[in-house]
Computed example of a mutant assay.
Amino acid sequence: MSYPRPDVRLVQSWQATVEVLQENTASQHSVLRMAYPTSSEIIAAAPHTNNSLSVGQRDNRDGSHYCDEVLRQRRTLSVQGAGAALSQYPRCADGSP
């Protein structure tokens, strides 16, 4: 099923945001996903090169991934020591939390 794409200017703003996050944290990757009823798609990703998480990648949402649980709770997520915390949850098919 095809879903409407976000406005180009909004996507550019999100791209700038993930770049700032990636540059200013110890994270190797920073991504923004758009959640659809049965899938999610990476809308913005940093860095642009050598990134296994690239814009346009889709993952089926089957409810078993950490990212689905965060969406289900509908609350802001803030994780101290995220690397250790995420290791206990299944990863999305593309390798992201």
Score class of each variant (00 low, 15 high):
residue 68 D to P: 15
residue 93 A to P: 02
residue 71 L to N: 02
residue 9 R to M: 08
residue 23 E to P: 11
residue 87 S to H: 11
residue 25 T to F: 03
residue 62 D to N: 11
residue 91 R to L: 14
residue 54 S to A: 13
residue 12 Q to K: 14
residue 64 S to M: 10
residue 22 Q to C: 12
residue 68 D to A: 14
residue 7 D to S: 07
residue 67 C to H: 03
residue 54 S to D: 03
residue 57 Q to W: 04
residue 51 N to W: 02
residue 29 H to M: 06
residue 10 L to R: 10
residue 71 L to S: 00
residue 15 Q to I: 03
residue 75 R to V: 02
residue 54 S to T: 05
residue 18 V to E: 03
residue 38 T to I: 05
residue 80 Q to C: 10
residue 4 P to R: 00
residue 25 T to N: 00
residue 82 A to F: 10
residue 59 D to V: 08
residue 39 S to L: 09
residue 59 D to E: 09
residue 61 R to I: 09
residue 77 L to D: 06
residue 38 T to R: 15
residue 10 L to C: 07
residue 52 S to I: 02
residue 24 N to L: 14
residue 77 L to G: 07
residue 93 A to R: 14
residue 1 M to H: 12
residue 97 P to C: 06
residue 45 A to Q: 04
residue 14 W to R: 05
residue 68 D to K: 15
residue 41 E to R: 01
residue 47 P to G: 11
residue 82 A to D: 05
residue 63 G to H: 08
residue 15 Q to D: 05
residue 68 D to C: 15
residue 11 V to Q: 04
residue 45 A to M: 04
residue 23 E to M: 15
residue 23 E to N: 14
residue 62 D to Y: 11
residue 95 G to H: 13
residue 2 S to L: 12
residue 59 D to I: 07
residue 54 S to L: 07
residue 6 P to C: 06
residue 40 S to P: 07
residue 85 A to P: 01
residue 80 Q to Y: 12
residue 88 Q to P: 00
residue 14 W to Y: 11
residue 93 A to H: 11
residue 91 R to Q: 13
residue 97 P to G: 15
residue 89 Y to N: 10
residue 5 R to H: 09
residue 28 Q to P: 04
residue 68 D to N: 15
residue 3 Y to I: 00
residue 56 G to N: 02
residue 50 N to W: 10
residue 2 S to R: 11
residue 65 H to C: 11
residue 96 S to M: 06
residue 4 P to H: 02
residue 42 I to M: 01
residue 84 A to C: 12
residue 29 H to P: 03
residue 84 A to S: 11
residue 14 W to M: 09
residue 53 L to C: 03
residue 10 L to H: 09
residue 15 Q to G: 03
residue 21 L to R: 00
residue 19 E to A: 09
residue 10 L to A: 12
residue 14 W to S: 01
residue 69 E to M: 10
residue 1 M to C: 08
residue 12 Q to C: 14
residue 19 E to F: 10
residue 15 Q to N: 02
residue 89 Y to Q: 13
residue 69 E to S: 10
residue 43 I to M: 10
residue 67 C to R: 01
residue 50 N to A: 12
residue 15 Q to P: 04
residue 37 P to L: 03
residue 69 E to I: 01
residue 93 A to V: 14
residue 69 E to L: 12
residue 53 L to R: 03
residue 28 Q to M: 07
residue 46 A to W: 03
residue 50 N to P: 11
residue 86 L to Q: 04
residue 51 N to L: 02
residue 1 M to D: 14
residue 28 Q to N: 09
residue 25 T to Q: 03
residue 2 S to Q: 12
residue 10 L to Y: 14
residue 62 D to G: 08
residue 55 V to I: 07
